[in-house]
Amino acid sequence: MYEPIRTKSVHSTMAGSTTDFPHRSREEELDIQLAAHLAALLAVTDELRATAPSEDLDAASDRLADQVARLREGRKPARSVASGGQVKLTALHRRAHALAGRALVVAASRADTAAAILAAERMDAHAAAQAEPQELSGVG
Results as ranks from 00 to 15, higher is better:
M1L: 12
M1F: 13
Y2I: 08
E3V: 03
P4T: 14
I5Q: 13
T7S: 12
K8Y: 09
V10Y: 13
V10N: 10
H11W: 14
M14A: 09
A15Y: 11
G16K: 02
G16I: 15
S17D: 15
T18M: 10
T19W: 11
T19Q: 14
D20S: 15
P22A: 13
P22M: 14
H23Q: 13
R24L: 11
S25C: 06
R26A: 15
E28W: 03
L30H: 03
D31W: 10
D31S: 00
I32L: 07
Q33W: 07
L34F: 09
L34Q: 12
A36N: 15
H37Y: 06
H37I: 00
H37S: 11
L38K: 02
L38M: 03
A40C: 05
T45P: 06
T45Q: 08
T45K: 04
T45H: 07
D46N: 07
D46S: 10
E47G: 05
E47L: 15
L48E: 10
T51Q: 08
S54G: 06
D56T: 06
D56W: 07
D56P: 10
D56N: 05
A59G: 00
A59L: 09
S61E: 06
D62Q: 09
L64I: 01
A65I: 06
A65G: 00
A65H: 04
D66G: 08
D66A: 14
D66K: 04
Q67V: 00
V68F: 05
V68T: 10
V68S: 03
V68G: 04
V68L: 03
L71Y: 01
E73W: 14
E73R: 13
E73V: 13
G74Q: 00
R75Y: 09
R75G: 01
R75N: 06
K76I: 15
K76Y: 12
A78P: 08
A78V: 14
A78N: 12
R79P: 01
S80W: 10
A82W: 15
S83E: 10
S83T: 14
S83Y: 12
G85S: 14
Q86R: 11
K88Y: 08
L89H: 03
T90D: 01
T90Q: 06
T90I: 10
T90V: 11
A91W: 09
L92I: 04
R95M: 07
A96G: 11
A96W: 02
H97M: 07
A100K: 06
A100C: 02
G101N: 03
R102V: 05
R102T: 10
A103F: 01
L104P: 05
V105Q: 11
V106Q: 06
A107T: 00
A107R: 05
A108V: 12
A108T: 14
S109M: 12
R110D: 05
A111R: 04
A111I: 07
D112K: 04
T113F: 08
A114N: 07
A116C: 08
A116F: 02
I117T: 15
L118F: 00
L118I: 03
A119V: 03
A119H: 00
A119G: 01
E121S: 08
E121G: 02
E121W: 00
H126S: 12
H126W: 00
H126R: 01
A127T: 13
A128P: 10
A129T: 05
Q130S: 09
E132I: 03
Q134W: 07
E135F: 09
E135K: 00
L136Q: 01
L136Y: 01
S137T: 12
G138M: 13
G138L: 15
V139D: 11
V139I: 07
G140W: 01
